[in-house]
């Protein structure tokens, strides 16, 4: 059979076309889309007014722990926490001084993941298990987490907890609507991304009795967070590190 160069090239071209069309055969008709009821925002953030935070009230943490199946472990070294409280000097180590206003000094400051603009945890993650989503929320894909804890070391806020043991036996009542975690993965606050997807505000904000926590979209000039920030002076935790934290504290 005669087979010249032209025919050979034509055959190559046709074969390449055929191979590139292969995925079409496998393509499923299924389409994905966000829930139409979801809250829409471009840059989620939180403004916290510690002055409105009631003493010894831990409703935010209780709500968060219950909804997200956060275990209560006996060993404090193994503690898992998404939102918790710190003393002022621990939350803002650079801002503390001897003659600090007494009310502020003794106040418990609610702290959580700052959902940084420039998150160091995302930069160090070797498997891209942690990432920043399109709305600015720093999230975890637990399926990909290999438990190396680089992110725990990189986060300057202590916002990441590692599961040293199976958390399930230490969860009082498992919320069936939300998965638990497993031994060997890191977990953190998600700004309640699963609630935003249903059109609900984060659980801690909803549970807060003193309205000390405000959640909203920074890109929307009419949002409550923007109104608060333009009317008050706010500080952020360790912003000098260049992480661009997006949880603001009114002082």
């Amino acid at each position: 059979m005669k087979f010249n160069k032209r025919e050979f090239l034509e055959l190559c071209g046709l074969s390449a076309l055929g191979v590139s069309a292969l995925p079409l055969l496998k393509l499923r008709a299924g389409q994905v889309q966000p829930n139409p009821k979801a809250m829409v925002g471009k840059r989620w953030a939180m403004v916290i007014n510690p002055g409105a935070c009631t003493d010894n009230c831990r409703e935010c943490r209780v709500a968060c722990d219950q909804i997200h199946n956060i275990p209560h472990l006996p060993d404090p070294k193994h503690e898992v926490k998404w939102i918790w409280t710190e003393n002022f000097e621990n939350a803002f180590p650079g801002q503390e001084y001897q003659y600090l206003e007494a009310s502020l000094k003794e106040r418990a400051i609610p702290v959580l993941c700052n959902h940084c603009d420039n998150p160091p945890c995302v930069r160090v993650c070797p498997t891209q298990a942690t990432f920043k989503n399109k709305d600015g929320i720093v999230l975890m894909d637990y399926h990909r987490c290999i438990g190396c804890r680089y992110c725990v070391a990189a986060c300057p806020y202590g916002s990441r907890s590692f599961n040293w043991q199976d958390p399930r036996p230490f969860i009082k009542e498992i919320n069936k609507e939300y998965p638990t975690r497993t031994r060997g993965v890191v977990e953190k606050c998600t700004f309640c991304v699963e609630r935003l997807a249903k059109g609900q505000i984060p659980a801690c904000v909803e549970a807060c009795t003193g309205k000390a926590l405000v959640f909203g979209d920074l890109e929307d000039p009419q949002s409550e967070v923007r109104q608060l920030l333009s009317a008050h002076y706010a500080i952020r935790r360790k912003s000098e590190l260049g992480t661009g934290p997006q949880v603001y504290y009114l002082v």
């Binding site: 008709a29 994905v32 829930n35 979801a38 990432f131 989503n133 894909d141 069936k176 997807a197």
Partner: peptide
């Protein structure tokens, strides 16, 4: 399919799946 769901939900926040026959499902294993 479950892997597609997982990536769509976690990475892109797309939680609604429209099947080939047009029926819609919440992409949730449980």
């Amino acid at each position: 399919l479950l892997n597609t769901w997982r990536n769509a939900v976690i990475r892109d926040g797309n939680r609604l799946y429209t099947a080939g026959d047009g029926k819609q499902y919440d992409m949730s294993l449980t």
